[in-house]
Design a protein around this nucleic acid. Structure first.
Lengths: 137, 137
DNA sequence: CTATATGCAAAATTTTTGCATCGTT
DNA sequence: AACGATGCAAAAATTTTGCATATAG
């Protein structure tokens, strides 16, 4: 996801580049943490200047995220806890879910082979494992 | 999951074998559909004699399912839609999630090999694919 | 200036909790 | 009879929706 490219796509669509949308894009760009809507809301609140209050609202965050998903700027993944997580990495990749702390980690498609009855299978894979932090402990 | 075995485990624990718990067990036994709590509630309502109303409540269903999970009689899986699903198959197995209809299907552990950087990886795997019905369409 | 987005508040969903009552053992 | 389970209703938590207002282009 490239911020400028996405902004251009939004412009082409006739979508307004509001400060809230910009802030969501800025926070998500390069973010590897699979943040939740609530985390994105908090980040936007922190990112936007407080020159006019309030800074944003939950509904706006959800609207923006739905828009970004439609445009293909983010992938939406449901975390093991049931919350939606937003992933700016839109390349084909898989996820490892830490069985200890629940953290979601991207795993490049090239690193994973799924064999079904000995034959390679396509599609997305989510598997359990331990993240770096929990593996050490 | 064997109904009689589970009932014995519950007795040994000093847990009451209420009609509601029996009905949940009866409905879950051999069920391959990964039903949700709401579906289980409906099924219990249908299974129990209407000699005394009401027949059950959502809280009781959740209590019962939590108990059955503790006892190891069901596995709990979160569906792609965020709802909890309950799986009486407690053997080590994986899940295929139909990318069309969302249905969860059990896949025996022996049928799946996950290679991470060429090396076999342990753990649970959930992957996308098409269920029999959606593959035909 | 006009179409669009925002913010608020309330609805919808799923799951959890508190408590009085009822049923198993 | 005693203890645990049930049922109800309300609380939590997350996401969605309706509408008046504000703002981007």
């Amino acid at each position: 996801m490239d911020v400028h490219a996405v902004e251009q796509v939004l412009r082409d669509r006739g979508c307004a580049l509001t400060p809230q949308r910009r802030a969501v894009l800025r926070f998500l760009d390069g973010n590897l943490d699979h943040p939740s809507a609530a985390q994105i809301f908090d980040a936007v609140t922190a990112l936007l200047p407080r020159t006019h209050r309030p800074v944003s609202s939950r509904a706006t965050i959800y609207n923006t995220l739905a828009l970004l998903e439609q445009v293909g700027a983010v992938r939406v993944v449901r975390g093991t806890d049931g919350e939606m997580r937003y992933d700016p990495n839109t390349t084909h990749h898989h996820h490892r879910c830490c069985e200890v702390c629940g953290r979601l980690e991207d795993v490049p498609a090239a690193a994973v082979t799924l064999l079904l009855h000995g034959q390679a299978a396509a599609g997305e894979v989510r598997f359990t494992g331990r993240c770096a932090g929990c593996a050490a402990a």
